[in-house]
Design a protein around this nucleic acid. Structure first.
Lengths: 343, 343
DNA sequence: TCTCAATTTGCATACGTATGCAGAACAATC
DNA sequence: GATTGTTCTGCATACGTATGCAAATTGAGA
């Protein structure tokens, strides 16, 4: 035991050929005779040789590494997306280098530097924004960036989101149609485009129906914050009869507070609607009505955008918005005759 | 725009010094005069230079990349561990390259090859086993491996788990003390050491109390399988009065079936105990009594073991088992006077 | 068998950095 | 100021691979 690394030079010697020949055998599309390929592959097999990706990338300028920046994995939507992204990229021969980051500028700056140090071929940020300066650095370094589930105005940044405005609007429509008169919102983080867009769409939808928000609080996309907001919002006698919560992760906290602390019935006393449709939402313990973010299609769009830039040299900045259906379940009163989009 | 990559050679020229000088300035512990450091850092700053990690690792033989092999992220325990592992390693200047893998030998073999191609400094497998041949390859390549939350007899593989046998035993003790007489088990995957050890400990605990398992089914660590098993196990009239489910992820499915399909009361009709203590377990919708796997300490042990091998050349194979407390909550009848370990 | 084109091979070099070695600069001591 | 010891610096080379170029081989056609 302990055979250590075996290099292309050793394989070459063992096979009685040049190092270049070995290299060519392992480079798809290079010019090699079948005889040579046989000889080399046999020698490689015997010595247990495999090309060193790092050395290769030094020459080719391609590391086949994609940097993924993610703030937290507590919200099930992100591990789910991570798994799908990783699988999709793996199928194309890429792998994901993970960078956890606290959602403030200092942390992101530091991490993004480390990212570029690894010569990543591309960057995906999940629910994380970027400073302009950072966007410039990536752009200068020729590293394409896709913001996943986060929008930003910068014209150099690709982005893939659900249609958050439209989603918010649909939910408003649904709640209004259900006869709710006192509608509140526990919003996603105001520092994020997703949070702002969902809220804006929601307000627009209410307005179109001649209603307006009874109350609105920033839940910061955090469980504790949302729970506190819910407690505060619903403890009084003049409580809302419906609430749209900015994502499912917070909606669970809100339902917990409503049902177990305030002993309210959902949806009897209050209708609750979330956003994301994470797996837990469909479990009967919550049975949450929610707007689905189609993570499969979002991942697909993210990967194809990224690979387009990396492998085909695309320069078209994509700002992709994907519509998702409202998943009607048991946490919100359903208007009579409302069509279930799941069908 | 498009300044492209800037190298140490350009910094050297710009500062009027040699390339080696630049390298030394960016190598901690190298011999450099303050004057030189100033000059170089200034030049580097002006050009926006950062060392190329890949080129560096070609020389040093250290990539500062840790490969993480993981089968699925659906069970919240794993994203949680991933986040903590990533943070801990980041603090030491390492990063995680993610490899998703289906839990069969073929997939693992393929992925492990890719892993070694990246010259990773170490490998962590989360809930994934390794063939002997694979273990040999890693060992030969000098790449240390830590199995996280999975045991295996191979004497070359480090491993960090909770004390699964003892955990299972504790749960048996708890259920027996609670006066349950018809105790069943929906086990973790029989192909995993964790599943087998928990079951063995559980059986041992029952036996010590003069009881034996009423029924036992393999839940494969999968939600659907566990749900089906629960339905089958509890639909008859002679159903168990308590069930230990091999992990929380399955326990939620079991509770869903018991409460929403079979209309049974938990813990009135049936006590349910899980294993892991994922965040969701403490939410009031489930309020699951469960044995905590102390992920913080498990991560800590994993990281220090790995870094011991990588940075200090340790050769001591560690087989670490960490005890966890039983988290007493509302899903299982509590024996009178039972001490709550949380205190 | 000889010629010419097409294919395959080897040589040399490049990628961006780290490091042993020897010489240069410097500080300290007498 | 000469001598010693110490700290810095530059030179050269190495890490493992890919690739342009020229030489070598192959095969076809006459």
């Amino acid at each position: 035991m302990g055979s250590e690394k075996v290099t292309s030079v050793e394989v070459a010697r063992h096979a009685g050929v040049s190092q270049s020949a070995v290299s060519r055998v392992f480079t798809p599309g290079a010019s090699v005779s079948p005889k040579m390929a046989d000889k080399v592959l046999k020698a490689a097999e015997e010595l247990g040789y495999r090309p060193n990706v790092l050395a290769r990338s030094l020459i080719t300028g391609r590391s086949r590494i994609i940097g993924l920046v993610v703030a937290y994995l507590e919200n099930q939507f992100y591990p789910d997306a991570l798994e799908k992204l990783s699988n999709a990229l793996q199928a194309h021969g890429y792998h994901i280098l993970v960078f956890m980051v606290s959602n403030d500028d200092a942390g992101i700056d530091k991490v993004m530097g480390e990212l570029l140090d690894y010569q990543v071929d591309g960057i995906i940020t999940a629910s994380v924004g970027m400073s302009n300066e950072l966007a410039s650095r990536c752009s200068n370094a020729g590293v394409p960036v896709v913001l996943f589930n986060r929008g930003q105005d910068d014209e150099r940044l690709n982005q893939v989101t659900s249609n958050n405005f439209e989603g918010g609007r649909k939910i408003a429509e649904f709640l209004v149609a259900g006869g709710h008169k006192r509608i509140a919102h526990i919003a996603g983080w105001a520092g994020s485009s997703t949070g702002r867009d969902r809220e804006a769409g929601f307000r627009a939808g209410l307005e179109a129906a001649g209603q307006e928000l009874l109350a609105c609080v920033d839940g910061m996309y955090r469980r504790e914050t949302a729970a506190a907001a819910a407690l505060d919002m619903f403890k009084g006698g003049d409580r809302p009869d419906a609430v749209f919560v900015g994502n499912d992760h917070m909606a669970f906290a809100v339902m917990d507070v409503l049902r177990f602390e305030l002993k309210l019935d959902v949806p009897g006393d209050v209708s609750v609607v979330g956003y994301d449709d994470v797996p837990l939402s469909s479990w009967p313990a919550y049975d949450l009505t929610t707007l689905r973010q189609p993570s499969n299609r979002m991942v697909e769009a993210t990967v194809s955008t990224l690979l387009g830039w990396i492998e085909e040299g695309s320069k078209d900045v994509q700002k992709i918005k994907i519509d998702g259906p409202l998943m009607i379940r048991g946490s919100a009163r359903v208007p009579e005759g409302w069509p279930n989009e799941r069908l």
